[in-house]
């Protein structure tokens, strides 16, 4: 089966003023349809860049990104993207933010009733019922993430890209949202690419973890996580296999974190 997303020898350079930043170097990887892939790496190693490339928002320097076997030449509207920054439209209430994708492109064909039903269903799925009429500025950080998630799911894309979605949340809330994300994802057959700098989070939720090196980002290790599903995010770190995965991946990650500190 062709992988749903494929990175072929990707490299990317940015200009920051006069300085060149080598963000990615020879990244080759595949994302299988239906898997939950976590990408872990020190900050600044090009994780967001990789997602931006997958969404077709920028062009690779060298190499190519394939979606269902076809090279990406423009914005990839088959995926949905929860970016690192909060990006709900601040002038729209929750309900209208969630409705946004259904006003655009091919999704706009949905009938009014279907649309209303879907919006309500996904708002309920992420646990925001009762907050439909609130503006983003009236929500907590966790609730804004939930709203973003509802907005990304409402048009039922095949692939969901998430960039450090729970990075800014406190430890307890993070676990709660991980659990909810798994509950929503398990059994849907959708593909989820989840970027994080938290190794434990990656092992907790993913089928497969990719560890990236510090800048320029390369792939340092790939590991299948064969822990049973459905997973209990609160208890999984005490499951026997968890520690082994953690140690192996941590040793791959560690070298770079020390390097990063010297720079």
């Amino acid at each position: 089966m062709t992988p749903i997303l494929e990175f072929r020898d990707l490299s990317k350079v940015f200009f920051k003023g006069e300085q060149r930043v080598h963000a990615l170097a020879h990244v080759t990887a595949e994302v299988e349809e239906g898997e939950l892939l976590a990408i872990v790496g020190p900050s600044g190693c090009g994780k967001s860049t990789l997602l931006n490339l997958s969404a077709g928002l920028m062009e690779p320097g060298t190499g190519e990104v394939l979606y269902r076997g076809q090279p990406l030449t423009r914005v990839n509207t088959q995926v949905s993207y929860v970016t690192q920054k909060d990006n709900l439209l601040p002038w729209r209430i929750v309900e209208d933010n969630v409705a946004l994708p259904l006003e655009l492109g091919a999704h706009a064909k949905l009938s009014k009733d279907d649309r209303r039903e879907r919006i309500a269903r996904y708002i309920e799925l992420v646990g925001l019922t009762g907050f439909e009429k609130h503006y983003p500025s009236e929500l907590s950080g966790g609730m804004r993430k939930r709203a973003q998630l509802a907005r990304s799911l409402v048009y039922e894309p095949d692939v969901l890209l998430m960039d450090e979605p729970f990075g800014a949340l406190d430890a307890q809330l993070k676990l709660v949202l991980q659990a909810e994300l798994l509950r929503m994802w398990e059994g849907t057959g959708k593909t989820l690419v989840f970027v994080t700098h938290d190794l434990a989070e990656a092992i907790t939720i993913a089928d497969r973890v990719i560890v990236m090196s510090s800048r320029p980002g390369r792939i340092r290790a790939i590991e299948h996580i064969d822990l049973p599903r459905p997973r209990d995010v609160f208890g999984i770190r005490f499951v026997p296999g968890f520690g082994d995965y953690f140690e192996r991946l941590w040793s791959a990650l560690r070298e770079d974190i020390h390097q990063g500190q010297e720079v």
Partner: peptide, 16 residues
């Protein structure tokens, strides 16, 4: 710019 990127991925045209 992030708002623009996100809505483009959702399938927005230039006019959108």
């Amino acid at each position: 710019r992030d708002l623009i990127d996100v809505i483009r991925v959702m399938g927005a045209s230039r006019l959108d």
